[in-house]
Design a protein around this nucleic acid. Structure first.
Lengths: 203, 203
DNA sequence: ACCAAACCATAGCAATGCTATGTATTGTGG
DNA sequence: CCACAATACATAGCATTGCTATGGTTTGGT
């Protein structure tokens, strides 16, 4: 109506929070606005509180990840592109581990469930190109295979970022992805040799 | 020397914290000791503070997970046992998502790095048994394959627990593991067809 | 039985996120 | 062009958090 929010303030706060995350400084309400000239109320007018800021931070993480993935140059080999996307994913997670941790913190509900799917979309399309090129068998669901690839990448990245695994473990990433792809592509029926254990789903 | 700590108090606090986690109640210093009869100082004498309590909670999570994995009955088929271990892992994560999240929170350094390896040990031995039975090719490193299996299980569990993936996605777990195992076992050299991307490790 | 050392209960402190209140600013209707 | 009103924004204060200081109480060793 009468006074418009300045988008610069919003992005300023987000950038500063991301920087403080990278610097390993605790991101508190007062320390965030200290030195910026704006007061603590800015966090409430723009984000509705600290929870809103963390939500925005999470979305920012997905946005940056999507940009990194979109920057991967596609080649004539869709399988290579899939591995390259996986590598970019891991590289992004390692470049800013704290932001990556925020992305999957889940301390508060995520309202931007579409952001993750959006980020996953280039993976899905890469699988579709590989499938169209005849590299996978016909009955693979691109979304399913992309989801599985995401699980592999996230599992590796998360275990490395949170400590249990050393950084060298990231070298497993591409071999695991290729194993997943080739197993799905060349051996129909083999991965059906799974056991039934009764935990498959849950309401 | 003069007065010994009562182990019952320690386990009482840990159990209560785990229960509050399951009940989705915020576990704060005062709310934790409320109703237990002990005062806030107990947290400091037994854990040195809230950080110490979270560390203990994380170790508790690994201990419970190890117990669940140890309870898996081994069969004559080592590959089936590996899949069963993976299923038990996912089941445990889903049974108490909050504790699972604490285990991999990394908000503070983990001093019990051995706990994770300890938990992973039964996976490694299962891979060794499968290898001894001739199910995998000779040059697979059991620790490496167990690590990869862990990455798959954790990636799936983490994405489901933190929200991005629905519970049905857990059904991918066993097929992914079998794909990983069979690809490693029957096709030497195929998973070597990986691309070089220059991100393989980092100091 | 003594005593010292540890446990542990109470009170208070700095810091946190949030809200209440007042002020300043600016888009808009006349 | 101007007055108004709605919104951004700054300040102050509140409840709660984890932590520390202080002292009482219990208990194991000699």
């Amino acid at each position: 109506m009468v006074r418009t929010k300045d988008p610069a303030v919003r992005s300023l706060l987000i950038d500063r929070a991301a920087q403080m995350l990278r610097m390993r400084e605790p991101v508190t309400l007062r320390s965030l606005v200290a030195g910026t000239g704006v007061s603590t109320m800015a966090v409430y007018t723009y984000f509705g509180g600290m929870d809103g800021l963390w939500k925005a931070m999470r979305q920012e993480g997905f946005t940056r990840l999507a940009a990194k993935l979109a920057a991967v140059s596609m080649s004539a080999d869709p399988v290579r592109d899939l591995a390259a996307l996986g590598a970019a994913y891991l590289s992004n997670a390692l470049a800013c581990p704290d932001l990556y941790r925020v992305m999957f913190d889940a301390g508060f509900e995520l309202e931007d469930a579409g952001a993750a799917d959006e980020t996953l979309h280039c993976l899905v399309s890469a699988v579709e190109r590989a499938k169209a090129a005849g590299r996978f068998r016909g009955d693979v669901d691109p979304l399913e295979l992309a989801t599985q690839s995401w699980a592999v990448g996230h599992g590796l990245a998360s275990l490395v970022v949170t400590g249990p695994l050393p950084h060298q473990a990231l070298a497993h990433g591409v071999p695991m992805l290729t194993a997943l792809f080739t197993s799905s592509g060349d051996d129909p029926g083999r991965c059906r040799r799974s056991v039934e254990l009764g935990w498959t789903s849950r309401p």
